[in-house]
């Protein structure tokens, strides 16, 4: 089932939670809405589910106007960050809820409902918990029951709001992998909201990066990591070195001194140079665009992480770089640095 969102605007008082958002989700996709808190990602998800209403714009699910229907008629599976399991019902009754509240005309008989619930509990591998109450489950189990409950209504689309946000790191990693394999099994169009970039990059087919109620970039995980479209995306995803530079007529200056790198078509004016930690190549002194003194080196695994104090300029600018361990760096040594890949974005004021 496809989802299409057009020109959605949502304001809470003077604050624009969503500012003209457009989004198309293809059939069977597993899409991540990624952004810091307050970026509007949860609001967008709730609007698609019908739990919030936009001030302007259109939402269609499977080509049908979704805003013409209330949340209860959209057949959307929604998984809440804090599970929202019905605390007075057993796990079994929680999962059966969506089947029991169907209009009498299409409601299945008791035996069919029981069989379906059993099937779903098997799917989330928790059939042995059927008679427990939510308070007797661990966080990870609750989240899987919440998912089984959402799937019971055979949702046209599945929406997950920070599905792993309240879990500890280890359980979160397990559930991530599990969600991805579950999705490839049932193939329902899914959107999940997260503020964790690693989660988004690891689980989703496509990632939508949001900030301040706007979509900054939509792309595959590789895309948003390797070709960030904006300064925000570059800074938010992956570790970046950010240096304030001046661009004028194709030359780039750092603290007044010209840098030996091309402006790559960046507009003149105050800008920021973004380089990934591992995209800064280290060479012998005098051979690169930048020069600095190594202050501290920590080696672990395949890399060594060095703190380098850049020479020149007014103050001491210290950056952290990741270098391969083919040549061991030593504290106190002067090295040159050459950005292999970099982006220049106009500075925001």
């Amino acid at each position: 089932m496809t989802i299409e969102v057009k020109n959605i605007v949502k304001k809470f008082g003077a604050f624009a939670a969503l500012d003209n958002v457009d989004l198309k989700v293809g059939d069977g996709e597993l899409l991540a809405l990624l952004g810091p808190s307050g970026s509007g990602k949860t609001t967008l998800l709730r609007i698609i589910a019908g739990l919030d209403w936009p001030d302007a714009g259109e939402v269609s699910i499977g080509g049908e106007d979704a805003l013409a229907r209330g949340a209860s008629e959209r057949q959307v599976g929604f998984v809440f960050q804090h599970y929202a399991l019905f605390r007075h019902m057993t796990v079994f009754e929680n999962v059966a809820f969506g089947l029991r509240v169907q209009p009498r005309a299409i409601r299945k008989d008791e035996a069919t409902i029981r069989a379906r619930v059993k099937e779903l509990l098997d799917l989330v591998q928790l059939d042995w918990l059927a008679n427990r109450y939510p308070s007797q489950l661990s966080g990870g189990q609750r989240q899987r029951i919440a998912l089984a409950r959402a799937l019971a209504i055979e949702p046209r689309i599945l929406l997950l709001d920070e599905p792993f946000g309240a879990l500890d790191a280890k359980v979160r990693k397990e559930l991530r992998r599990w969600l991805r394999s579950l999705h490839s099994e049932i193939h329902v169009t899914s959107i999940f909201v997260t503020h964790d970039q690693e989660e988004a990059l690891e689980v989703a087919n496509r990632v939508v990066v949001m900030d301040k109620g706007r979509i900054e970039q939509i792309g595959t995980p590789g895309d948003v990591y390797d070709n960030p479209a904006t300064a925000f995306v570059h800074g938010f995803i992956g570790e970046s070195i950010v240096l304030p530079v001046d661009v004028s007529g194709g030359s780039v200056r750092l603290g007044g001194r010209p840098l030996n790198i091309a402006a790559n078509g960046a507009a003149s004016g105050a800008s920021n140079l973004f380089v990934r930690r591992h995209d800064m190549q280290i060479g012998p002194a005098g051979s690169g665009a930048l020069e600095g003194a190594v202050r501290h080196v920590r080696s672990f695994g395949p890399i060594q992480r060095a703190e380098v104090a850049l020479s020149g300029g007014e103050g001491k600018t210290v950056i952290e770089i990741d270098a391969p361990r083919d040549r061991e760096l030593r504290a106190g040594e002067t090295v040159s640095l050459q950005p292999r890949r970099y982006r220049i974005f106009a500075a925001q004021r």
């Binding site: 209860s72 919440a146 019971a152």
Partner: peptide
Amino acid sequence: TQEEEAAISLGASGLQTFFRVTLPN
């Protein structure tokens, strides 16, 4: 309101939500 929202997203009407979720709670 989360449990009510969950009930509604599962297709429950307002009355069903009240009698099956809110009232028992």
